[in-house]
C-alpha cells in the first residue's frame, strides 16, 4: 500500500517528534515544526503520538492514494479536497483507493500535517524518521519529497468496510486549547538582564514582525532594535527550540525545529513549550507580541496540554470502537 507524490509542494518532508540523544555530536533534533499538530493527527488515528507524518507548506503537495487509507490532517488548514470533495482538518477520513488529495487555498496557519493510520514504512536514521535536510539523512532518502516519490504505509490495524467513496468520520478534535492568538509567553533567559531597562520595556510592549527569511531553523523578527548594557562576547553553549536570541544588530530570532545545537548570542528568553505550536503556525508578515511568565506557569501549561491530548485520545478510542462495531 502506498501513496505517490503527484506534485511536490513548496517544502514537503517526513517528520516525527525529532531525533534526540545526539546533540553532543552537533546533530540537531529537528522534527515537526508544530509538534502538537503531529500529535493531534496521530491521536485521531490512534497511532503512536510520535509516528512519522508528512509536513507541508503552501503551495502544498498533491498526493495520490494508490490504496485505501485512513488519514487525518492537522495544523494549517489549506482547504483540502479528495476527488473534489472538500475535507476538514482535525477529523479522521477514509480515503478510497486511487484517490487524490489536493490543497486548494490557505484558510489559516502555515504548516500542515498528513498522518496515515499505521504510519509510513520508512527506515530510521539515528532513532528518528525526521528528515535532516542539512546532512541529507532520515525521512524519505534524506530529502524533501518530489514528483513520483512512492511512500509505502503499513497495514491499518483494523480493516474498514471497503468503500469507494471518501468518508469523513463523525468525530473531530477540538484544538482550541492547543493554540493561542494572544501574546506569546516566554520565561526570561539567562541573558535577559543584559537588556537595558528601555529594551526590556520594548520587548514587552512592542510588536515584532516575522520576516520572509524565516525557515525551519528559526523565525527572524523585525522590531525595535534592542540594546545590551555591555557587548562582552559569550562562549558558545547549548540552545533550545523556542530560545529568543539577540543578534548583534539588535534584532531577535526565535529558534525553531532545525536550530543549531549550540550558539553564542545572548538568550534573552525562551518561548514556553505550550506556545511553540502557535508560533510555528504564524505566517511571514504576522506581528507577534511577547509576555513574560515564570517557570511554574510554563511547566503547568505543558502538563495541562498533555492532559488535553490524553483526553482526546480516550475520546477517539471510544469513537473508533463504536464506528467499527456498526
Amino acid at each position: 500500500m502506498s501513496i505517490t507524490i503527484v506534485k511536490p509542494g513548496l517544502l514537503t518532508t517526513i517528520q516525527d517528534n525529532g531525533r534526540w540523544g545526539f546533540q553532543h555530536l552537533g546533530i540537531n533534533p529537528g522534527g515537526a515544526m508544530d509538534l502538537r499538530a503531529l500529535q493531534i493527527a496521530n491521536t485521531l488515528l490512534l497511532n503512536d503520538l510520535s509516528e512519522a507524518v508528512i509536513e507541508f507548506y503552501f503551495p502544498a503537495p498533491i498526493i495520490r492514494f494508490n490504496q485505501a487509507a485512513f488519514i487525518a490532517l492537522s495544523g494549517a488548514d489549506f482547504n483540502a479536497s479528495i476527488n473534489g470533495i472538500s475535507i476538514p482538518i482535525n477529523q479522521p477520513i477514509y480515503v478510497p483507493e486511487n484517490s487524490t488529495i489536493q490543497f486548494n487555498n490557505k484558510i489559516n496557519g502555515k504548516v500542515g500535517y498528513l498522518a496515515v493510520q499505521g504510519g509510513f514504512a520508512l527506515t530510521e536514521w539515528m532513532n528518528s524518521f525526521s528528515t535532516n535536510l542539512k546532512v541529507g539523512a532520515g525521512g524519505f532518502e534524506g530529502r524533501a519529497l518530489t514528483i513520483n516519490d512512492e511512500i509505502f504505509f503499513t497495514v491499518p490495524f483494523r480493516k474498514s468496510k471497503k468503500s469507494t467513496t471518501c468518508t469523513i468520520l463523525p468525530w473531530k478534535a477540538d484544538t482550541k486549547a492547543f493554540y493561542t492568538t494572544e501574546a506569546l509567553q516566554f520565561i526570561p533567559g539567562n541573558e535577559f538582564n543584559l537588556l537595558t531597562e528601555v529594551s526590556k520595556q520594548l520587548l514587552l510592549q512592542e510588536s515584532f514582525t516575522i520576516l520572509p527569511k524565516s525557515d525551519r531553523m528559526g523565525y527572524c523578527l523585525n522590531g525595535p532594535s534592542l540594546s545590551r548594557i555591555h557587548s562582552k562576547e559569550m562562549i558558545s553553549s547549548a540552545v533550545t527550540r523556542g530560545t529568543i536570541q539577540l543578534l548583534p544588530n539588535g534584532q531577535c530570532i526565535i529558534l525553531m525545529a532545525d536550530h543549531q545545537t549550540t550558539g553564542g548570542y545572548p538568550r534573552i528568553g525562551h518561548i514556553i513549550s505550550a506556545h511553540l505550536p502557535s508560533i510555528a503556525q504564524k505566517e511571514v508578515g504576522t506581528e507577534v507580541q511577547f509576555k513574560l511568565t515564570d517557570l511554574p506557569t510554563a511547566e503547568n501549561f505543558s502538563l495541562l496540554q498533555a492532559q488535553h491530548l490524553h483526553q482526546l485520545k480516550n475520546a477517539c478510542n471510544l469513537q473508533l470502537d463504536a464506528y467499527h462495531r456498526h
Binding site: 520565561i187 553553549s237 547549548a238 533550545t240 523556542g242 525562551h270 514556553i272 513549550s273 505543558s302
Partner: peptide, 10 residues
C-alpha cells in the same frame, strides 16, 4: 533554565 524543559550547568 534554558526553556521549560532544559537546563544548563555553567
Amino acid at each position: 533554565p534554558i526553556g521549560d524543559s532544559a537546563l544548563t550547568i555553567e
